[in-house]
Nucleic acid binder design. Structure first.
Lengths: 346, 346
DNA sequence: CTGAAAGCGCTAACAC
DNA sequence: GTGTTAGCGCTTTCAG
């Protein structure tokens, strides 16, 4: 490990090559106005000295850092990290660095310091990849006017004038329910995620509207609320069995809760899919090996991250090209049904 | 959104307060040598103007950025992201920013540009959080001497003189196997992860040594290799059933493959745990709701990330306090058994 | 206690 | 084509 101090600077290279720092600068920035021989010589020296321009110094003079702030939460769960995976991939493609911040909780009021922290590091834009829960987005959305860089949101209710990229959870709920109806089910219950989550509300609404459209009832009696965990899924399922004994199918808002449903149903000798059709949401890797294998709704969170990052960079580039006013537009990615054994009547 | 240009600088504050920039600098750095009144006045102005010192400029002058480079891979899986979750938590606690880089594959030879990329941004240290597979760590380990900042590795074979933080996978394999032996099982097979992974080899070795110690056979015939996926677990299990018909228990190197074992066993009317004891590894959230619920080995990846980051910062602080030579030491975190239904005879 | 000057590593704007 | 000057926003001397 070489001591921290000796960094090869543009000055060293210039001295060694017998030119001005400006010329070296021109070379590393591939400007045309350098004599071929000079360029050769300088490049050779750069190679030989292992010189690497300081992006920090560049950020300072160019008033642009090619660094993006990413705010996330819940990395201990698979969803957010898949999204992050997409974000890093796209950032790499576009040559941007990522400054990562994770909120300690989904709902925090320590937002202002966080924004300042990122701005102090001259980030070019912010990707807000935190699910919308209660009014946890209120402060950021409200402060948008005072944030001097573009902000793109992931997984949030569309709002006019704000760029948002999300999975179409409403459509997902609709597809899942329609699939069960197509199997001839008439009493489709729903186990929802926590209803302060926007995503949970959307999925529930999709279920409700699909039922309505089919002229079937979808009231509070036909729905129970969980908190995404298997344990909560178990409780919700038992509640539903009690309130809705004629239920012949259930759309569960995520695969973990659906797993609990399969587990309990099996214990109660309630046969899936014969006496109960089950559809989950997320398509986690394990769901194909549940017993029976789980029909579910696949959401491509990798793509979600990619699209959001692209959108953010688009806005940044637009600004740097002088177009201060790009239309903000929301993007909704469509989920897709993954049909397996748990829902299909033999 | 405020236009990109107008940033409040220390100069503006100084002007507004009628002092020099030095004085403002002293105030924001909480130096003692400022008159109380001056301090008051300056602080008021700072508040009022919403001034935030540029960490970029600071990094330049202080030759220290309070930013750490984190190199990860496989964020689409839950393990690496749980580790990252621990990393972000500890970084937040210690006041460090995180520059995140994800390798496109576990084994890449595009390492040098990546290191240069991070060094160009003046990171104070690097956390190498990529699992050791084949010789994918060779280049980094070999280049350590030419990397001017401390590097700490996560999940890698301990090497003298290099700081490494890992879960004790060998112990995990040992515990799992011993648990099965304590249940009276005598023919414990093993489904390993891909054996070019260091973790997979360690778990297998733990199984092997536990069997040896008990005077039981643990040869190639008693082991099959998977690739962590459920599908590969299915194939490996079938192979094992064929080669090792007297098998009465199996230690599976991760929960996803163990899920496939439960699935297939159920299909073959092979009763778990009566005719087959099963133990997994990882303790994923779903495992408690498998059917039967899965006994497994819990590894605390969050803590892993926390410890590694702490270790990295320790080394950085040591250097800045002038102690260039801190002893590099490895840290092994112990996993623990989570006993559930799949392994315990009634 | 406070300020002036120099410099961190680089580039924009202008000279020649 | 190439060099000079100034400045990005801050801190480190060193005066006073």
């Amino acid at each position: 490990m070489i001591p921290h101090n000796r960094r090869v600077t543009i000055k060293h290279v210039a001295q060694e090559a017998g030119v001005s720092t400006q010329t070296v600068s021109r070379v590393i920035n591939e400007r045309p106005d350098v004599a071929p021989e000079t360029r050769q010589r300088v490049m050779a020296i750069i190679q030989q000295m292992g010189y690497q321009p300081s992006e920090l110094a560049r950020s300072l003079t160019q008033r642009r850092s090619y660094t993006l702030g990413v705010v996330t939460a819940g990395l201990q769960y698979i969803g957010p990290s898949r999204t992050l995976n997409g974000i890093t991939t796209k950032a790499e493609e576009l040559g941007y660095a990522l400054l990562l911040k994770e909120l300690p909780h989904y709902t925090t009021n320590e937002i202002r310091p966080l924004i300042k922290f990122m701005l102090a590091r001259h980030i070019d834009g912010i990707l807000w990849a935190v699910p919308e829960i209660g009014d946890n987005h209120a402060w950021v959305v409200g402060s948008l006017a005072s944030i001097p860089v573009p902000v793109v949101f992931i997984t949030m209710q569309a709002r006019p004038g704000i760029p948002v990229v999300s999975i179409d959870n409403y459509l997902g709920g609709m597809l899942a329910t329609q699939h069960l109806l197509e199997q001839g089910r008439r009493h489709v219950g729903h186990i929802a995620g926590p209803l302060d989550w926007w995503e949970a509300r959307q999925r529930k609404q999709g279920w409700q509207d699909a039922m309505m459209k089919a002229g079937l009832a979808a009231d509070d009696r036909h729905c129970a609320e969980g908190n995404w965990s298997s344990a909560s899924g178990e409780a919700a399922f038992k509640e539903l069995l009690e309130n809705y004994p004629e239920m012949d199918a259930v759309f569960v808002a995520n695969d973990q809760m659906a797993l609990a449903v399969l587990h309990i149903a099996s214990r109660l000798q309630k046969h899936v899919p014969q006496s109960l059709g089950v559809v989950g949401f997320d398509n986690i890797a394990e769901s194909a090996y549940f017993w029976p294998s789980l029909t579910t709704v696949n959401q491509n969170q990798h793509e979600l991250g990619r699209h959001a990052l692209q959108e953010l960079v688009n806005r940044i580039e637009a600004i740097h090209k002088g177009k201060e006013t790009t239309e903000a537009q929301s993007l909704l990615l469509s989920p897709e049904m993954i049909v397996r054994e748990s829902s299909v009547l033999p």
